Computed example of a mutant assay.
Amino acid sequence: MKVTLLLVGKTTGRLFSEGIDDYVRRVNHYVPFGVKVIPELKNAKSLSEQQQKEKEGELILKNIEDRSYVVLLDERGKELRSVEFASWLGNKQQTQRHVVFVVGGPYGFSPAVYGRADDRISLSRMTLSHQMVRLMFVEQLYRACTIMRGEPYHHE
């Protein structure tokens, strides 16, 4: 199974970038994993929230292959403990060839993106910055990989 993290806008901040890069390298030890960045919209300030979501949604959908299993990282998604996420990921390894996790823009996802999604996962009930979500997700993906292999990174 191949895993992709699809992001709207580049990661800002050296500490976030370095942390994400570190976990991307770690995850690649277990599964083929990459991060794909959709550039931020030009002149976004001149667009309404809805217009931004629609335009970002079009770009997100253009970057997803038809057969990919799409998971939105969304505040209204299901919350999983790390062990549960590892089990969920293990099940997807058995049934999917490509899983794409998507982090949307500042206003969330368009109805079209919600319609394309196969699943939604929330990383927290708290509101997190889009930069923080990226780092937290790649760490949790790495943690899930180590749990599935029975390695000592995760402690109950």
Rank of each mutant, 00 (worst) to 15 (best):
V83C: 03
P152Y: 00
V24W: 13
L5V: 00
H155C: 00
D66W: 01
D118S: 12
R81A: 13
L123K: 02
R25W: 05
V71N: 02
G105C: 07
T4K: 15
N63G: 10
Q50V: 15
V99W: 02
M148C: 04
Y30L: 04
L5H: 10
E79A: 01
Y153L: 09
L41F: 05
Q52D: 11
V100T: 04
S129R: 11
L15A: 12
K62N: 12
R97S: 01
K78Y: 05
V37C: 06
Q94A: 12
G9M: 11
G150V: 10
L80C: 09
Q51S: 14
H29V: 05
H98N: 00
V35R: 13
F33A: 00
S129H: 06
V8F: 10
R120Q: 13
R125F: 06
G150C: 06
G90L: 04
D22G: 07
L128E: 00
G9W: 10
G90V: 01
R125P: 03
P32V: 00
V83L: 12
P111F: 13
F101M: 06
E40V: 09
S129I: 00
K53I: 00
L73T: 02
K36I: 03
A86V: 11
S129Q: 12
L80K: 08
F101K: 02
E54M: 13
M132F: 02
G150D: 10
R97M: 00
T11I: 15
R120T: 01
L141Y: 10
L141I: 03
G19Q: 09
P106D: 03
V35H: 08
G104V: 00
F16T: 12
F33R: 09
L72Q: 14
E56I: 02
L135Q: 08
L80A: 11
Q96C: 10
Q94G: 03
Y114S: 07
M126I: 01
E84G: 15
R26T: 13
G34S: 13
A44T: 09
W88Q: 04
P106Y: 06
E54R: 14
S110K: 09
E139K: 07
R81C: 06
K53W: 04
V133I: 15
Y69D: 03
P32T: 11
R81Y: 14
L80R: 09
F137E: 12
K62P: 05
Q50S: 15
L59I: 02
L80D: 07
V37W: 07
M132K: 03
F33T: 03
K2M: 05
L15P: 00
G9N: 12
R25N: 14
P39C: 05
S48K: 14
N63Q: 13
V103Q: 01
S87M: 10
N63P: 10
S48C: 15
G9A: 12
P152A: 06
A44P: 08
K62H: 11
Y30F: 15
G115R: 12
I20S: 02
K62W: 03
L141S: 05
G108A: 14
E75L: 06
Q50C: 05
L80S: 13
Y153I: 09
A44M: 09
E54W: 07
Y30S: 06
Q131D: 01
T12W: 11
K53L: 07
E139G: 11
E156Q: 13
